[in-house]
Simulated assay, not measured.
Amino acid sequence: MVEVARAGRADIDWLVREDASSGEAWVSRCVALGEYLLAWQAGEIVGFLRFSRFWGRVPYMEMIRVLPEHRRSGVGTALFLAWEEAMRGDGARLLMTSSECDESRPQDWHCRNGFCETGAIELPGLQSVPEVFFVKRIA
């Protein structure tokens, strides 16, 4: 059984290690703002979802990661559904996410979870391929 809860200060070391590209300052900031959800199984953290708000309003799923040995077991879906419900509870009507255009598995996952492609942008110097954006209406 997967349990999902907001991350707390006690989870920062784990998040810094597992969300390594973010760095401790950013992880701490996101934890303080309640922008991490953690998935737990048998008393251990097995995944996380990090989000923010696009334009300060639209919930934007920045990263979802499940530890390799727990993938394809419903952990990612549990994280996503908990986030969607929390955002709906906050009054959101639309969700956003994205992936690089050459990442077919994440794009398939987004589509299976109700997202539709809405456009792409190129970020020269930051990424070698365009970023594809997805939206999902929840209201």
Rank of each mutant, 00 (worst) to 15 (best):
L79H: 03
F80N: 06
E117M: 07
M87R: 00
D90G: 09
S28G: 15
A86T: 04
I138F: 12
Y36S: 06
A139K: 14
G74R: 05
S22G: 09
D13T: 06
H70F: 15
A86P: 14
A39F: 00
V75L: 09
S98H: 00
R17H: 07
Q41F: 06
A32N: 01
E122L: 12
E44L: 12
S28A: 13
L37R: 04
Q127A: 15
V46A: 00
A39M: 05
R105P: 02
R9L: 12
R112S: 07
V2C: 11
T97R: 07
G43N: 08
I138P: 08
E117P: 15
I45Q: 12
L33M: 11
D90I: 03
E103R: 12
M63E: 10
S128V: 12
F134Y: 13
M63H: 09
E3S: 14
M61C: 14
W40M: 08
A20W: 06
G47A: 03
A39Q: 00
S98E: 10
Y60I: 02
S28V: 03
R65E: 10
D108W: 13
A20Q: 03
L94C: 12
E131W: 11
G47D: 05
G34D: 02
C116P: 10
E44Y: 08
V58P: 01
G74F: 01
Q127R: 14
A7T: 00
F48N: 03
V66G: 01
L67K: 07
Q127N: 11
S99Y: 10
G119Q: 09
R88P: 05
E122G: 07
L94N: 08
M63Y: 05
T118G: 13
V16M: 01
M1W: 11
Q127W: 14
G89F: 06
F133P: 15
